[in-house]
Write a protein that binds this DNA or RNA. Structure first.
Lengths: 351, 351
DNA sequence: TTGAAAGCGCTACCAT
DNA sequence: ATGGTAGCGCTTTCAA
C-alpha cells in the first residue's frame, strides 16, 4: 500500500518511488545507483529498470546534505566581462564539469565588500572549494571571510597574506614583461613608461621586471610608473599624462588588456605613429592587439590554461587536502609592429 | 548535557549549537533567523547573540531540501569566452545576486549533447529556474531535457518549438540589420553579402531583414548569404569566397562579432581598403570595431541589459509562474568609416 | 510566545 | 545480498 512517493518539489520521483516500483528496499536503490558493489544482478537490473521507467534523478541537495560534499565549487571573479577572466572561467569550468563538479559563479564587479559577502554565500551553499580572482589582495573583510573557510581555496594571479591557507596559480609576469622591457631597451629606448592597476601581485611583478631590465643591461633606471585602475579611462589618462611630460617616454608598456583601448584613443588623438613615434606593448592578447594596424606587441599567456590548472589544483586538494601549493605559468613577449627603434631625441641621445 | 552540536561537515556550528547556547528551542532559532514574526524581544536577542557568537550560518542545502526552493538558478551558455555572452552573464548575475540568487554556470562549448546533460545536472541540483543561451534550437536531446523541467525557463536570443514552455528575451536583429542594409543600398550598393552562423533565430532575422531592405527600396534582391559557424575561420573563408566571385558584393554584413577577426584577415590579405573598395558591417560592438582603422560600422545592442532582463523575467516567474512571455530588446546601426559609397563597377552600374 | 517532533530525500550503518 | 533505520540541518506544523 505504499505506492505513493511524490519525491521532489516539482513532482519528480524520489528514491522511494523507485524502491516501490522495483519492489526492493530504498537502501538497495541507493546502493545500486551509487554504483556500490554487493548487489545481485537481478536486483541491480530491477532497480535500474524502475529508475529509468520513472525518469528518476537523485536530489543533489539531499545527497549533499547526507554526504557532506556537494561536488560544487564557488568561483569568485571581479569582472566576468573581461575577456581574460572569461577565458579563465571557461578553462576552469571545462575541467570541473568533466570531473562532475558544478560551478557557482559570482561576479563582484571589483567591489571588495561584495567579494566577502559572496564568499559567505558560497560557504552557506556548502561548496567543496573556492577559486578566487579578486580585485584586491588586502581587503580586510575578504580576508576575514577567507579565514573562516574550511575548504580548499585556489587563488589566481593574486597573493594573500600567509595566514590564508590558499593555493596559488600564478602567471609569471616577470618573465614576459622582462623580455619586453629588454627588447625595448635594446632597441634604443632609454626612458620607459609603465601603466599598471592597483597594487596586486601582477602589478608588483611588472614593476620589478621593468626595473630589473634596466639593471640587467647596465642602464640607469629611467621608468615612469602610472598607477590607477585597469580601465580604458585610466589607459587614456595615463598616456595623455606621460606623453605630455617635458621628457616623455619613447616606449610604454600597458599592464592590462583593458588599458589598450584608452591608450589607443590617446595615441590616435595625438596622431602618433606606433612603432615610429612611440613604441607600445600591451598585456594579454585580445583581437584588438592582432588586428590593430600596426599590430600591438603583447605579453601573452594562456588564460584558459590558467583556469584549468586552478581547477585541477582545487580538485586535487578536495580529494586529498595537502600542503599549500603554488603553480607558476609562463608569460612571453610577442614582438609586433607597434615596437620600433627609439626615435633620436634628447631623451634617447646616446650618453 | 546537550552541549555538543557539531554542525556542518567542516565543523561549522549548526542550528542546534545556536539553540543550545541561547538556551532556547531549535524552532525558535529558525524562526528568529528567518525573520518570522512572533518572537519576544528577549528571545530574539538571545538567539541573535548566540548566532553571532558562534558565527552561525545556515546550511543552504538543508534549507533547500526542506523549503523545496534553493534560490539558485542554472545558466547554460555555449561559449563564455565570447565577450557578448560574458556580458550577458554579467548582466544577469548582478540582478540575480541582488535578489539573493546564486548562479550555476555551465559552458557547453557549443556541443548540444553537453547542453542536454548539463540541464539534467542543474535540475538534480534543484535550481529554481534556468536561463539558456544554447548554440542550437533543434537539438532533440536538449529539447527532451527541457520538457522535463518543471521550473521556469528563460531563453535568450533563441527560439524553441512551442511545446517547450519557455519565456524569451530576444534581440530585435531585424531592426538593426535592416537599418544597416538600407544604408548600404542607399549608398549605391546593389549586391550585398551576409555571413551568418547556424540556423538560429538571429540568423533567420538577419536574412529576412536584408531581403526586406531590398524590397523596401524597390530594388531587386541581390544578396549572397554565406552560412557556417560564427568563428573567425568562417569569417575569413566566407570573405575569401565572396570576394573571389566573378561579381563580388560591394558591401558585406557579418552576423556575429567573432567573424570580424577572420574577415579582417581576408580584407588585409587582399589589400582592400574598407569603406572604399569594400564596405563592411559587423554585429555587436567589441573594442576591435571601434579601434580598427577605419572603424567598423556595427549593429549594436546592450548585452548586459539582455542578461538583466532575462534574469528579471526569470525571477518574476519563479515568484509567480505565469503565461509564456517574450521580451524584445532593440538593436541599432552605428555607421562608421568602414562603410562608404559603392565603387562604380559593373555590379553597381546604374540600371 | 515557545518548543517537540515530523520529515524533506538521501546515505550508511547494522542487522538479518 | 538485502533492507530497516538513524540522521544530515533545517522548516513547519501542532500543542502546550
Amino acid at each position: 500500500m505504499s505506492e505513493n512517493a511524490p519525491g521532489d518539489p516539482k513532482g519528480r520521483p524520489g528514491i522511494k518511488a523507485v524502491a516501490a516500483l522495483a519492489g526492493v528496499g530504498i537502501a538497495s536503490v541507493s546502493r545500486v545507483l551509487s554504483g556500490q558493489p554487493g548487489s545481485s544482478p537481478q536486483l541491480t537490473q530491477r532497480v535500474l529498470d524502475a529508475a529509468r521507467a520513472l525518469g528518476y534523478t537523485p536530489n543533489a541537495l539531499a545527497q549533499g546534505l547526507r554526504r557532506r560534499a556537494t561536488r560544487s565549487i564557488g568561483f569568485v571573479v571581479s569582472d566576468i566581462t573581461n575577456p581574460l577572466i572569461a577565458s579563465i572561467v571557461g578553462g576552469a569550468e571545462s575541467v570541473l564539469s568533466v570531473a562532475g563538479f558544478s560551478v557557482l559563479l559570482t561576479n563582484s564587479g571589483g567591489v571588495p565588500s561584495i567579494d566577502a559577502e559572496r564568499i559567505e554565500v558560497l560557504m552557506q551553499r556548502q561548496v567543496d572549494g573556492l577559486i578566487l580572482l579578486p580585485a584586491l589582495e588586502d581587503d580586510a573583510a575578504t580576508l576575514a571571510a577567507l579565514r573562516n573557510v574550511k575548504s580548499p581555496i585556489v587563488v589566481i594571479d593574486r597573493s594573500f597574506p600567509d595566514d590564508i591557507p590558499a593555493h596559488y596559480v600564478l602567471s609569471d609576469h616577470y618573465q614576459g614583461i622582462g623580455a619586453a622591457a629588454r627588447h625595448l631597451l635594446e632597441s634604443g629606448h632609454r626612458r620607459l613608461g609603465l601603466v599598471v592597476g592597483r597594487d596586486v601581485r601582477p602589478t608588483r611583478e611588472r614593476i620589478r621586471a621593468m626595473q630589473d631590465a634596466f639593471d640587467s643591461l647596465g642602464l640607469k633606471r629611467d621608468l615612469i610608473v602610472h598607477r590607477g585602475t585597469l580601465s580604458p579611462e585610466h589607459g587614456k589618462a595615463a598616456l595623455e599624462e606621460m606623453l605630455a611630460q617635458k621628457r616623455p617616454p619613447s616606449a610604454i608598456v600597458l599592464g592590462g588588456n583593458q588599458l589598450l583601448e584608452g591608450a589607443l584613443s590617446a595615441v590616435h588623438r595625438r596622431g602618433l605613429k606606433l612603432g615610429v613615434d612611440l613604441s607600445l606593448v600591451s598585456c594579454d592578447d585580445v583581437p584588438l592587439c592582432r588586428f590593430h594596424q600596426p599590430a600591438i606587441a603583447t605579453v601573452m599567456r594562456d588564460a584558459s590554461l590558467l583556469g584549468a590548472r586552478a581547477a585541477q589544483l582545487l580538485l586535487a586538494h578536495i580529494e586529498a587536502p595537502g600542503e599549500p601549493e603554488t603553480v607558476s605559468l609562463p608569460t612571453w613577449f610577442e614582438l609586433r609592429e607597434s615596437c620600433g627603434a627609439a626615435p633620436v631625441t634628447s631623451a634617447n641621445a646616446s650618453g
